[in-house]
Design a protein around this nucleic acid. Structure first.
Lengths: 237, 237
DNA sequence: GAGTGGTCTAGACCACCCG
DNA sequence: GGGTGGTCTAGACCACTCG
């Protein structure tokens, strides 16, 4: 089990402070040579470190040391910028696409509307310290938000809801699972196909209990940790 | 990108119903031959399917189709057996170890007690349909629970707390992150070192706000999804 | 243009599982 | 005891990044 030995040695090097957050590791060939092994085995060790969220891979750029994950509390109104700021992080949002579409079978189901209903479809990438960490897809019921597309989506959606429509999230159903990145999502996050990820799916309701939007968030798995408090309700509830 | 093609073909085969949940895939050598490739490339495809939680690997036994994940709501008092039952699953708990120990630096910090305080240390593995899916470590403040070790830990801890000590969880701080399995944990879950996992760390307080125990849960990542509802509180809170 | 990461080949040996 | 999965070797080619 050479790759485990290599993994442990790299962990020591990381923890000793030889590498700092966001720093690039030496090239795979150099590491393989240093550990007297082949690239295949060396990459096995790197993959293990990746699963432990100690390093991450940028497609064709190399391996880097993970910074601290962002702490995410599902109970809070999710304003990415503020959440990052409160944790001393530098956030940035890039708009990939914002358009009005007709609900497909899948999106109709998500928003609980008939097929072919008008909905908005917004795709964004969010960055922490210039690293893309999450790919966000929003599906929004168009009838509550006339002219929504006029607004600036590099700002928070929830702020726009409140400011222009006096609506805000009251209740959120969410689902968190692990998955992997591929295709367009992987590309936007500079990840290779197959990189481990967390998927957060949310369905949001306003003060009146009306479903207003859904979002799908694909997080690089090392960039996030869920942290929250629960006041427990009994099992029978 | 052969391995992506192979992955897609296997997904089709799975979705077509050619394989059913918990079924074993053909051996890696046979699959490699069928897809006209080498084992290395074939395994790349299998790893991708593993990250997507479509198949899982039992150490030295082979690859199997994932059953549905267990839905886990952090707001509920966590009684594994009942949770499983409610979802029509067959649950079983195996006790690995239950003993009294003196708090180490790490466990003292977790339980917010001085070092060398008496605490209980319980290690269990939980199964769904005979598959080990989560490795649970409990650290419990001993002074609230005289003679706790006399009880049956294949049953729920929370039931024992309530029945014998009239204590129950009121508030829980939890943290969910992704990691990978290794060592003893991997062994107990029949996983290979490096398998993707979710780690749930919880700190539990009773009705009087006293910290009573902590637990660390290492889940096979495909076996779990977090599903819950949040009533949102404002950002400023 | 040099070097890099992503992908792939064609083998090999071993410990272990299962029949 | 045969076949399996886990691990490893020693290469190779290509498209891409970066200086």
């Amino acid at each position: 089990m050479q790759y485990l030995r290599i993994k442990e040695e790299l962990i020591e090097q990381i923890e000793s402070g030889l590498f700092v957050a966001r720093q690039k590791l030496p090239s795979e060939r150099k590491l393989a040579e240093a550990f007297l092994t082949t690239r295949v085995t060396l990459r096995e060790a790197l993959r293990a470190l990746e699963s432990e969220a100690r390093i991450y891979c940028e497609d064709r750029r190399g391996w880097f040391i993970c910074p601290e994950p962002l702490r995410y509390d599902p109970r809070l109104t999710l304003n990415f910028a503020d959440m990052a700021k409160q944790q001393g992080r530098i956030a940035f949002t890039e708009l990939l696409q914002a358009k009005q579409i007709l609900a497909t079978k899948k999106t109709a189901k998500l928003l609980q509307v008939p097929m072919l209903t008008n909905i908005y479809h917004i795709t964004r990438v969010r960055y922490l310290e210039k690293r893309p960490v999450v790919y966000v897809v929003n599906y929004i019921k168009a009838d509550y938000f006339a002219k929504l597309l006029d607004f600036d989506f590099t700002q928070s959606l929830t702020v726009a809801y409140k400011k222009h429509y006096s609506l805000c999230y009251q209740t959120t159903y969410y689902r968190i699972s692990t998955t992997s990145l591929s295709g367009e999502v992987a590309l936007a996050l500079r990840a290779t196909s197959g990189s481990p990820a967390m998927l957060i799916e949310r369905t949001n309701y306003d003060q009146k209990g009306r479903l207003i939007d859904c979002d799908l968030e694909y997080w690089r798995h090392d960039a996030l940790c869920i942290e929250s408090v629960a006041e427990l309700v009994s099992q029978e509830a």
